[in-house]
Write a protein that binds this DNA or RNA. Sequence first.
DNA 1: CGTACACCCTGGCCGC
DNA 2: TGCGGCCAGGGTGTAC
Length: 286
Amino acid sequence: MPELPEVETVRRGLEPAMKGKTVAHVDVRRPDLRWPFPTRMAERLTGQKVLRLRRRSKYLLIDMESNETLIVHLGMSGRMLIHWPDAPDGHPEPEKHDHVVFDMEGGVRVVFNDPRRFGLMDMCQTAALDRHKLLAHIGPEPLGNGFDDTYLGAALLGRKTAIKTALLDQKLVAGLGNIYVCEALWRARISPFMRACDVPPAKIRDLVPVIREILVEAIEKGGSSLKDYRQTDGDLGYFQHQFAAYGREGKPCRAPDCKGKIVRAAQGGRSTFYCHICQNVLERDG
DNA sequence: CGTACACCCTGGCCGC
DNA sequence: TGCGGCCAGGGTGTAC
């Protein structure tokens, strides 16, 4: 599902289609996603040039020349499909879950498709983005300078919730979802069930570079599939990465010389994947 | 404030 | 084959 690396991949993929181009037409094909679309969204975007595309956490930020920013969240199943103008049969007819169609000057079409409609869009003054309800309380970017072991140690202090749950908290660190949290804990050999405040300082020091490595690797792999971005299936390879833990229930642990198997357990209503040997999970409490 | 959990939504999959 | 039930899960809202 779209976590930080996937959103970053989408951002990079959209740049050649949108950056520096003027929005010629916007077709809003249903009234709402998770929330109603911003008022007069189509009118506010039409005729405006896209200055740049940014990302904050899992949010895609599209800055317009009008000093407004379009905020896009892909939710669970959201995609941005690009239809280039040189396609032999022109643009295909919109499909059932194509909710917003952006026609750019020059003929490129960008389609927001989201079957489950957990995605959302909003607009706000670019200068006021930091104060926007969705962005104001998000923690530091894991690939930025604000995320280091000093910060993480302080953030986990006194938190009794499981480290798995804590890392999913966007106020603690931005952009991590279920997949990359499972992968990071596996790689750092930390039990997902351990209370956040009980994670030893040495493990916290391990966790910071591990999280960075995993995200960077995932972005690089997403980037390598960008050449396929023109394909109408729009698949960015969300599940093409080689995960070590996520989704590998019952399969052998990939750690060298480890004879363990990946286990799946419910934690906070969602699946956690881990190796009970590497991650030293005894019962259910780390 | 921290913590826990229900809820939103659809498509895919599994078992009967 | 058809159908019910469950699962995926990010973020919000509510309750304790």
